[in-house]
Simulated assay, not measured.
Amino acid sequence: MVKFGIIGLGRIAHKFAHDIALVDGCTLQAVGSRSKEKAKEFASRYKAVNYYDSYEQVATDPEVDVIYIATPHTLHYENTMMCLDAGKAVICEKPFAMNANEVAHMIHTAKEKSLFLMEALWTRFVPATLKVKQLIDSKAIGKITSISSSFGFVAAHDPDSRLNRHDLGGGSLLDIGIYPIFISLLLLGDPIETHAIGKLNASKVDQRCSILMKFENDAIAALTSDFTTKLPNETIIYGSNGKIKMHEPFHHTRMLSLEINEQPSQVLELPLIGNGYAHEIEEVVYCLQNNKIESDLMTHQLSRDLIRNLDQVRSLIGLEYDVNK
Protein backbone atom coordinates (compact mmCIF):
# COMPACT_ATOMS: atom_id res chain seq x y z
CA MET A 1 0.00 0.00 0.00
CA VAL A 2 1.47 3.36 -1.07
CA LYS A 3 0.87 5.95 1.65
CA PHE A 4 0.59 9.56 0.49
CA GLY A 5 1.28 12.75 2.37
CA ILE A 6 0.12 16.17 1.18
CA ILE A 7 1.59 19.56 2.06
CA GLY A 8 -0.21 22.75 1.08
CA LEU A 9 -3.95 22.25 1.42
CA GLY A 10 -5.41 24.61 -1.16
CA ARG A 11 -7.90 24.00 -3.97
CA ILE A 12 -5.76 21.57 -5.99
CA ALA A 13 -4.90 19.54 -2.91
CA HIS A 14 -8.62 18.98 -2.28
CA LYS A 15 -9.07 17.58 -5.79
CA PHE A 16 -5.98 15.42 -5.48
CA ALA A 17 -7.02 14.04 -2.08
CA HIS A 18 -10.47 13.20 -3.42
CA ASP A 19 -8.91 11.18 -6.25
CA ILE A 20 -6.55 9.22 -4.00
CA ALA A 21 -9.61 7.36 -2.74
CA LEU A 22 -10.41 6.30 -6.34
CA VAL A 23 -7.07 4.59 -6.97
CA ASP A 24 -6.26 1.05 -5.84
CA GLY A 25 -3.11 0.43 -3.87
CA CYS A 26 -2.82 3.75 -2.08
CA THR A 27 -4.16 5.69 0.87
CA LEU A 28 -3.88 9.17 2.37
CA GLN A 29 -1.63 8.92 5.41
CA ALA A 30 -0.87 12.52 6.45
CA VAL A 31 -1.63 16.13 5.56
CA GLY A 32 0.09 19.31 6.62
CA SER A 33 -0.89 22.97 6.79
CA ARG A 34 0.36 25.98 8.70
CA SER A 35 -3.07 25.97 10.33
CA LYS A 36 -3.82 23.00 12.55
CA GLU A 37 -7.54 23.60 12.27
CA LYS A 38 -7.32 23.58 8.47
CA ALA A 39 -5.25 20.40 8.54
CA LYS A 40 -7.71 18.73 10.91
CA GLU A 41 -10.70 19.64 8.74
CA PHE A 42 -8.92 18.47 5.58
CA ALA A 43 -7.92 15.18 7.20
CA SER A 44 -11.46 14.57 8.40
CA ARG A 45 -12.94 15.24 4.96
CA TYR A 46 -10.54 12.93 3.10
CA LYS A 47 -9.93 10.36 5.86
CA ALA A 48 -6.23 11.04 6.35
CA VAL A 49 -4.71 9.11 9.25
CA ASN A 50 -2.62 12.02 10.56
CA TYR A 51 -2.72 15.80 10.31
CA TYR A 52 -0.06 18.33 11.25
CA ASP A 53 0.36 22.08 11.57
CA SER A 54 3.72 22.05 9.79
CA TYR A 55 5.06 20.68 6.53
CA GLU A 56 8.11 19.26 8.29
CA GLN A 57 5.98 16.87 10.34
CA VAL A 58 4.54 15.34 7.18
CA ALA A 59 8.07 14.87 5.83
CA THR A 60 9.18 13.11 9.01
CA ASP A 61 6.09 10.93 9.46
CA PRO A 62 7.61 7.41 9.27
CA GLU A 63 4.46 5.97 7.64
CA VAL A 64 4.48 8.35 4.65
CA ASP A 65 5.96 6.94 1.41
CA VAL A 66 5.46 9.82 -1.02
CA ILE A 67 4.57 13.47 -0.58
CA TYR A 68 2.46 15.55 -2.94
CA ILE A 69 3.57 19.19 -2.81
CA ALA A 70 0.79 21.68 -3.57
CA THR A 71 2.29 24.81 -2.05
CA PRO A 72 2.77 28.11 -3.97
CA HIS A 73 5.30 28.08 -6.82
CA THR A 74 8.12 29.77 -4.96
CA LEU A 75 8.07 27.11 -2.25
CA HIS A 76 8.34 24.10 -4.56
CA TYR A 77 12.12 23.86 -4.48
CA GLU A 78 12.42 24.36 -0.72
CA ASN A 79 9.63 21.91 0.07
CA THR A 80 10.87 19.29 -2.37
CA MET A 81 14.38 19.42 -0.96
CA MET A 82 13.03 19.15 2.59
CA CYS A 83 11.07 16.01 1.67
CA LEU A 84 13.93 14.43 -0.26
CA ASP A 85 16.30 15.13 2.64
CA ALA A 86 13.81 13.35 4.89
CA GLY A 87 14.00 10.30 2.62
CA LYS A 88 10.58 10.70 1.01
CA ALA A 89 9.57 10.23 -2.61
CA VAL A 90 8.06 13.42 -4.06
CA ILE A 91 5.59 14.54 -6.67
CA CYS A 92 5.55 18.32 -6.91
CA GLU A 93 2.98 20.50 -8.62
CA LYS A 94 3.89 22.47 -11.72
CA PRO A 95 5.99 24.44 -12.26
CA PHE A 96 8.48 21.97 -10.78
CA ALA A 97 10.52 24.89 -9.42
CA MET A 98 11.26 28.51 -10.29
CA ASN A 99 14.19 27.96 -12.64
CA ALA A 100 16.34 25.30 -14.30
CA ASN A 101 19.04 25.40 -11.62
CA GLU A 102 16.54 24.52 -8.90
CA VAL A 103 15.10 21.68 -10.99
CA ALA A 104 18.59 20.32 -11.73
CA HIS A 105 19.43 20.27 -8.01
CA MET A 106 16.16 18.53 -7.15
CA ILE A 107 16.74 15.83 -9.76
CA HIS A 108 20.38 15.37 -8.76
CA THR A 109 19.40 14.95 -5.11
CA ALA A 110 16.63 12.46 -5.90
CA LYS A 111 18.98 10.34 -8.00
CA GLU A 112 21.72 10.54 -5.39
CA LYS A 113 19.30 9.28 -2.74
CA SER A 114 17.56 6.81 -5.11
CA LEU A 115 14.20 8.45 -4.42
CA PHE A 116 11.28 8.78 -6.81
CA LEU A 117 10.71 12.34 -8.03
CA MET A 118 8.14 13.56 -10.55
CA GLU A 119 6.61 16.82 -11.66
CA ALA A 120 2.88 16.52 -11.02
CA LEU A 121 1.80 17.84 -14.39
CA TRP A 122 -1.53 16.04 -14.61
CA THR A 123 -2.03 16.82 -18.30
CA ARG A 124 0.63 14.25 -19.22
CA PHE A 125 -1.38 11.39 -17.74
CA VAL A 126 -5.00 12.07 -18.76
CA PRO A 127 -6.39 9.67 -21.39
CA ALA A 128 -6.84 12.36 -24.04
CA THR A 129 -3.16 13.39 -23.91
CA LEU A 130 -2.09 9.74 -24.13
CA LYS A 131 -4.35 9.34 -27.17
CA VAL A 132 -2.99 12.46 -28.86
CA LYS A 133 0.57 11.23 -28.36
CA GLN A 134 -0.39 7.86 -29.82
CA LEU A 135 -2.05 9.48 -32.84
CA ILE A 136 0.94 11.73 -33.50
CA ASP A 137 3.47 8.90 -33.08
CA SER A 138 1.47 6.76 -35.54
CA LYS A 139 1.45 9.62 -38.09
CA ALA A 140 -2.36 9.66 -38.11
CA ILE A 141 -2.34 13.26 -39.34
CA GLY A 142 1.04 13.04 -41.04
CA LYS A 143 3.83 15.43 -40.14
CA ILE A 144 2.93 18.19 -37.67
CA THR A 145 3.04 21.57 -39.39
CA SER A 146 1.76 23.80 -36.61
CA ILE A 147 0.20 23.91 -33.16
CA SER A 148 -2.17 26.59 -31.93
CA SER A 149 -2.82 26.60 -28.19
CA SER A 150 -4.39 29.22 -25.94
CA PHE A 151 -5.47 29.43 -22.31
CA GLY A 152 -7.02 32.60 -20.98
CA PHE A 153 -9.52 33.80 -18.40
CA VAL A 154 -10.31 37.05 -16.65
CA ALA A 155 -8.51 36.83 -13.31
CA ALA A 156 -9.45 38.88 -10.28
CA HIS A 157 -7.51 42.12 -9.87
CA ASP A 158 -6.96 41.38 -6.18
CA PRO A 159 -3.28 42.14 -5.45
CA ASP A 160 -3.36 39.55 -2.66
CA SER A 161 -4.40 36.78 -5.04
CA ARG A 162 -1.76 34.09 -5.61
CA LEU A 163 -2.04 34.80 -9.32
CA ASN A 164 -0.89 38.40 -8.85
CA ARG A 165 1.68 38.00 -6.09
CA HIS A 166 5.25 38.32 -7.26
CA ASP A 167 6.60 36.66 -4.10
CA LEU A 168 4.51 33.55 -4.80
CA GLY A 169 5.53 33.21 -8.46
CA GLY A 170 2.34 34.71 -9.86
CA GLY A 171 1.62 35.49 -13.49
CA SER A 172 -0.04 33.79 -16.44
CA LEU A 173 3.08 32.07 -17.81
CA LEU A 174 3.83 29.80 -14.86
CA ASP A 175 0.19 29.27 -13.94
CA ILE A 176 -1.43 28.50 -17.30
CA GLY A 177 1.11 29.27 -20.05
CA ILE A 178 3.00 26.17 -18.96
CA TYR A 179 0.27 23.98 -20.51
CA PRO A 180 0.55 25.18 -24.15
CA ILE A 181 4.34 25.04 -23.89
CA PHE A 182 4.21 21.53 -22.43
CA ILE A 183 1.97 20.17 -25.20
CA SER A 184 4.30 21.62 -27.83
CA LEU A 185 7.41 20.11 -26.25
CA LEU A 186 5.70 16.75 -25.76
CA LEU A 187 4.75 16.51 -29.43
CA LEU A 188 7.59 18.36 -31.16
CA GLY A 189 10.59 18.23 -28.84
CA ASP A 190 12.77 21.23 -28.03
CA PRO A 191 12.30 24.38 -30.16
CA ILE A 192 15.23 25.77 -32.13
CA GLU A 193 13.90 29.33 -32.04
CA THR A 194 11.63 31.14 -29.59
CA HIS A 195 10.06 34.61 -29.63
CA ALA A 196 7.80 36.03 -26.92
CA ILE A 197 6.09 39.22 -25.87
CA GLY A 198 4.28 39.84 -22.62
CA LYS A 199 2.69 42.50 -20.47
CA LEU A 200 3.64 42.85 -16.82
CA ASN A 201 1.35 44.48 -14.26
CA ALA A 202 2.20 46.73 -11.33
CA SER A 203 3.19 43.66 -9.30
CA LYS A 204 5.75 42.80 -12.00
CA VAL A 205 4.08 39.55 -13.00
CA ASP A 206 2.82 38.86 -16.51
CA GLN A 207 -0.85 39.39 -17.26
CA ARG A 208 -0.52 37.94 -20.72
CA CYS A 209 2.12 36.26 -22.79
CA SER A 210 2.31 35.28 -26.46
CA ILE A 211 4.95 32.84 -27.65
CA LEU A 212 6.06 31.72 -31.10
CA MET A 213 8.28 28.64 -31.36
CA LYS A 214 9.97 27.06 -34.36
CA PHE A 215 11.05 23.41 -34.34
CA GLU A 216 13.58 21.37 -36.31
CA ASN A 217 10.96 19.92 -38.64
CA ASP A 218 9.85 23.50 -39.52
CA ALA A 219 6.70 23.19 -37.42
CA ILE A 220 5.52 26.37 -35.69
CA ALA A 221 3.72 26.64 -32.34
CA ALA A 222 1.69 29.78 -31.54
CA LEU A 223 0.94 29.80 -27.81
CA THR A 224 -0.92 32.25 -25.58
CA SER A 225 -1.68 32.65 -21.89
CA ASP A 226 -3.82 35.51 -20.61
CA PHE A 227 -5.32 36.71 -17.32
CA THR A 228 -7.19 39.61 -18.95
CA THR A 229 -9.32 37.88 -21.59
CA LYS A 230 -11.43 34.74 -21.90
CA LEU A 231 -9.73 32.78 -24.65
CA PRO A 232 -10.56 29.40 -26.17
CA ASN A 233 -8.90 26.97 -23.78
CA GLU A 234 -8.08 24.58 -26.60
CA THR A 235 -5.23 23.17 -28.64
CA ILE A 236 -5.32 22.40 -32.36
CA ILE A 237 -2.56 20.30 -33.88
CA TYR A 238 -2.32 20.67 -37.65
CA GLY A 239 -0.62 18.01 -39.75
CA SER A 240 0.10 17.37 -43.42
CA ASN A 241 -2.85 14.92 -43.54
CA GLY A 242 -5.31 16.42 -41.07
CA LYS A 243 -5.72 17.91 -37.63
CA ILE A 244 -6.51 17.06 -34.02
CA LYS A 245 -8.46 19.37 -31.73
CA MET A 246 -8.12 19.03 -27.97
CA HIS A 247 -11.39 20.54 -26.79
CA GLU A 248 -11.81 22.97 -23.92
CA PRO A 249 -10.36 22.60 -21.34
CA PHE A 250 -7.54 21.08 -23.35
CA HIS A 251 -5.19 20.47 -20.41
CA HIS A 252 -7.61 17.90 -19.02
CA THR A 253 -10.01 17.46 -21.89
CA ARG A 254 -12.48 14.64 -22.22
CA MET A 255 -12.93 15.09 -25.97
CA LEU A 256 -10.82 15.08 -29.12
CA SER A 257 -11.82 15.76 -32.72
CA LEU A 258 -9.81 13.98 -35.40
CA GLU A 259 -9.98 15.05 -39.03
CA ILE A 260 -7.95 13.14 -41.64
CA ASN A 261 -7.65 14.13 -45.31
CA GLU A 262 -10.68 16.43 -45.11
CA GLN A 263 -12.96 13.53 -44.20
CA PRO A 264 -15.76 14.13 -41.69
CA SER A 265 -14.44 14.80 -38.23
CA GLN A 266 -14.39 11.92 -35.74
CA VAL A 267 -15.18 12.75 -32.12
CA LEU A 268 -13.33 10.70 -29.52
CA GLU A 269 -14.74 10.63 -25.98
CA LEU A 270 -12.08 10.01 -23.34
CA PRO A 271 -13.54 10.18 -19.82
CA LEU A 272 -11.52 11.13 -16.76
CA ILE A 273 -11.46 9.26 -13.48
CA GLY A 274 -12.66 11.57 -10.71
CA ASN A 275 -11.25 15.08 -11.00
CA GLY A 276 -8.60 13.88 -13.43
CA TYR A 277 -5.78 13.59 -10.89
CA ALA A 278 -6.34 9.86 -10.47
CA HIS A 279 -4.35 9.19 -13.64
CA GLU A 280 -1.15 10.73 -12.30
CA ILE A 281 -1.77 9.05 -8.93
CA GLU A 282 -1.96 5.71 -10.74
CA GLU A 283 1.41 6.46 -12.36
CA VAL A 284 2.98 7.28 -8.99
CA VAL A 285 1.64 4.08 -7.42
CA TYR A 286 2.93 2.03 -10.37
CA CYS A 287 6.37 3.62 -10.20
CA LEU A 288 6.74 3.15 -6.46
CA GLN A 289 5.49 -0.43 -6.56
CA ASN A 290 8.10 -1.15 -9.24
CA ASN A 291 10.97 0.65 -7.45
CA LYS A 292 11.33 3.30 -10.13
CA ILE A 293 12.85 6.70 -9.34
CA GLU A 294 11.52 8.32 -12.52
CA SER A 295 8.31 8.13 -14.54
CA ASP A 296 8.60 6.96 -18.13
CA LEU A 297 5.82 9.39 -19.06
CA MET A 298 6.81 12.53 -17.15
CA THR A 299 10.56 12.04 -17.30
CA HIS A 300 13.17 14.15 -15.56
CA GLN A 301 14.42 15.26 -18.97
CA LEU A 302 10.96 16.49 -19.97
CA SER A 303 10.80 18.53 -16.77
CA ARG A 304 14.29 19.92 -17.48
CA ASP A 305 13.24 20.90 -21.00
CA LEU A 306 10.03 22.47 -19.77
CA ILE A 307 11.64 24.66 -17.11
CA ARG A 308 14.46 25.67 -19.46
CA ASN A 309 11.92 26.90 -22.00
CA LEU A 310 9.94 28.69 -19.29
CA ASP A 311 13.17 30.40 -18.20
CA GLN A 312 13.84 31.50 -21.77
CA VAL A 313 10.35 32.95 -22.22
CA ARG A 314 10.63 34.75 -18.88
CA SER A 315 13.89 36.29 -20.04
CA LEU A 316 12.32 37.44 -23.31
CA ILE A 317 9.40 39.20 -21.59
CA GLY A 318 11.40 40.60 -18.65
CA LEU A 319 9.72 38.45 -15.99
CA GLU A 320 12.02 37.98 -12.99
CA TYR A 321 11.51 36.49 -9.55
CA ASP A 322 13.47 36.93 -6.34
CA VAL A 323 14.70 33.35 -6.07
CA ASN A 324 18.00 31.53 -6.30
CA LYS A 325 19.51 31.87 -9.75
Rank of each mutant, 00 (worst) to 15 (best):
G239V: 03
S44F: 08
Y46D: 04
A110M: 01
G276S: 09
F215N: 00
E283S: 02
L130F: 02
A221S: 14
D296S: 12
L130E: 10
V313Y: 11
V313P: 04
F16A: 02
A219I: 04
H279M: 13
D61I: 06
L200S: 06
Y179C: 00
S184K: 05
I12P: 00
K94D: 05
L231W: 10
H247C: 14
M98C: 07
K15Q: 06
K38S: 12
A140D: 00
R11D: 09
I192V: 14
N201G: 11
V103W: 04
A128E: 03
G5L: 05
N50S: 14
F153I: 05
E269V: 09
R308M: 13
P62L: 09
L75T: 05
T129L: 06
S210W: 14
S315N: 13
H300R: 03
K36S: 13
L258C: 09
A30N: 12
P72G: 08
D167N: 06
V154R: 15
V58L: 14
D137N: 15
D137W: 05
R208C: 12
E282F: 04
K133Q: 15
F227N: 01
A70F: 03
I144E: 06
L173M: 07
G10N: 03
V323G: 02
F250C: 08
A104S: 14
P232M: 04
I7A: 00
L75N: 07
Y46F: 15
I307W: 01
L168E: 12
A39C: 12
V23A: 12
L75I: 07
T129H: 10
N99M: 00
L200F: 06
D158L: 09
Y55R: 04
E294L: 14
G171M: 07
Y46A: 06
F96V: 03
V103M: 01
E37W: 10
L130S: 11
L270Y: 00
K292W: 01
R11M: 04
N233C: 12
D322C: 01
L117I: 09
A221Y: 08
K88G: 08
N241W: 00
A86M: 10
K3Y: 06
P232S: 11
I176H: 02
N324L: 13
D218K: 14
E102Y: 03
L173T: 00
F42C: 13
D53M: 11
D160W: 12
R11Q: 12
I220R: 02
L28P: 04
D190T: 14
G274A: 10
N201Q: 06
S240A: 11
R45C: 11
F153T: 02
K38C: 03
M81A: 01
G198Y: 08
G25R: 08
Y238H: 15
A30W: 09
R165I: 13
S149L: 01
K36H: 11
D158W: 07
P72Q: 05
L288A: 10
M246F: 01
G10D: 01
H251V: 00
E193N: 14
A156F: 08
L306P: 01
E78R: 12
C83L: 13
G242W: 00
C92Y: 00
E248G: 10
Q207N: 13
E119I: 02
G8C: 10
P127S: 03
R124D: 11
H108E: 14
S149A: 15
F116G: 03
E320Q: 13
H247E: 15
D322H: 08
V31H: 10
I183D: 01
F151P: 00
T145G: 01
I293Q: 09
A202T: 14
S295A: 09
A120D: 02
K15W: 04
D19T: 02
L258G: 02
